[in-house]
Design a protein around this nucleic acid. Sequence first.
RNA 1: GCCGCGGUAGUAUAGCCCGGACAAGUAUGCGGGCCUUUCGAGCCCGUGACCCGGGUUCAAAUCCCGGCCGCGGCACCA
Length: 527
Amino acid sequence: MKAEEQLSLLRTQFPEEAEERRPREEQKGLPPLPEAEKGVVTRFAPNPDFVLHLGNARPALLSYVYAKEIYNGKMILRFEDTDPRIKTPLPEAYWAIKEDLKWLGIKWDEEYIQSMRMEIYYEQARELIKRGGAYIDLCNREEISKNRASRRACKHRLQSVEENLELFDRMISGFYGEGEAALRVKTDLNHPDPSVVDWIGMRIIDTSKHPHPLSGDRYVVWPTYNFAAGVDDHLLGVTHIIRGREHAQNTTKQMYLYTHMGWNYPYVVNVGRLKLEGFILSKSKIRTILAKYPGRFEGHADPRFGTLAGLRSRGILAETIRETILGLGVKPSDASISWDNLASLNRKKLDLGTRRLMMVIDPVKLYIEGFPEELLVVRIPYHPDNKSLGERELRIGVDKTGPYVYISRKDLEMVMNSTKQARLVELANVEITSTIRSDPPIAMAKYISRDLETARKRGMPIIQWVSHNPVKALLRDPVGLRYNIYRGFIESSAIALEDQVYQLLRIGFVKIVEKSEKKILLLKIHE
RNA sequence: GCCGCGGUAGUAUAGCCCGGACAAGUAUGCGGGCCUUUCGAGCCCGUGACCCGGGUUCAAAUCCCGGCCGCGGCACCA
């Protein structure tokens, strides 16, 4: 029986039952967080060893939006800088990360730096030892991994609380060198993942060799990620952890810590990783490229990188990133953002407030025979739909041969290959009569009329032009890690105005990189 | 290899928990039309997807099992 038949049967037989049915409530935006009624405290916990990239924006934005915009709760920013040796923090990253977050519109209520909370971790470690949840292991790495593989405990696991406390103090005093002692959190010895088995909660880092940028060589015993994050999430009252999927196994580890301490583990949401079509996001890859090609990139903020700073220099709006990422939802599956999609969204946001200018690539001088004198100066609005952006005056250049404009060589070829007639935007309809192969190239045209209707009726292509006082323009179009370079003329309004972003007619949206009286360097944002 | 998590149009996402109005919604892309002094924007129409195989059920995108594929983890990194 088909569903509709069943339904009609139901309606005739049991009318009340049928009416009970109501459509499921439509959920706008993000799904609700479980157990949110008791309050929501989220955290974003980056490692300040590099700047943020688009992928980091996912947990950051979700943590912010849930905590502050949906549940009226609290958001914490916490720098996880407890590895001065391998992931040495970058002093400028603490600041740069905050800039990135502010740019995204993220506001946090509290801010912590883990390397400044060392005494707290020591105190919690002692408490954990007292509760029998941890021991100081004096085995070396090889012994530890061998024992893990065979799921065996070493003798140090059986030490008394007193012995462990004493050994711990000795660790802190600097008695042991790197790898000679570690605090291990007791777990199920038979856990299928060997890295979970009695995981390392604290280890020794020789800060005389690897000083921490904030605390120098003051501490030698450092908590691992799982210890520090686990302790902090509890102590800071975090209720919901939104983090990358790569942390899934860490929840398992931290759960043992929470059980020993009698704490409740926050609710965890694992989100998938993000890719941006055509961009490199990985910090290690970006670092490698920067090291390999010094001088070829403008650091981590280069518009060809998928860092937030890079996207910002590219001309992508924070709002575009926000909408894109929130649109992905909170799935644990990875997502690859298509450039078309991002560009389309960004374009719509830029369009109405952006002045439109004309630039010709590969200019060809086009003399117009019979050009009426009253058209030598024209006024053209900067935006056809947004008159508040004003208008500018464009003058037509005249030399001894007569009045002329520059058009792009590609357009000239296109027009020559069709009806030879074209409309110059907001100016006049012309017919090209001849082209002269010279350097620079020249073409001749005949004035037809100035009305738009004729152009429409005859189906003329409408092309942009530049004339009097052209400014040399160099347009960089990012393609992967390269730039395609286009040279041409842009109207002088680009110099006169203060705008940073323009739409170049029939070329796309661009951002000004540099400009002087004579020259302008542009970066293509997208079409 | 072991453990874990995923798989809905070209791309991304909604729906899955709680099976029925889902011949599957939305955005972008693509095709067509309208409008428009850009190849942009807007409006309209169209295109196109439930990984595969079994099972449960009157009914499966949704639940169960198996396979395939993708991703993550398997550090004294975060």
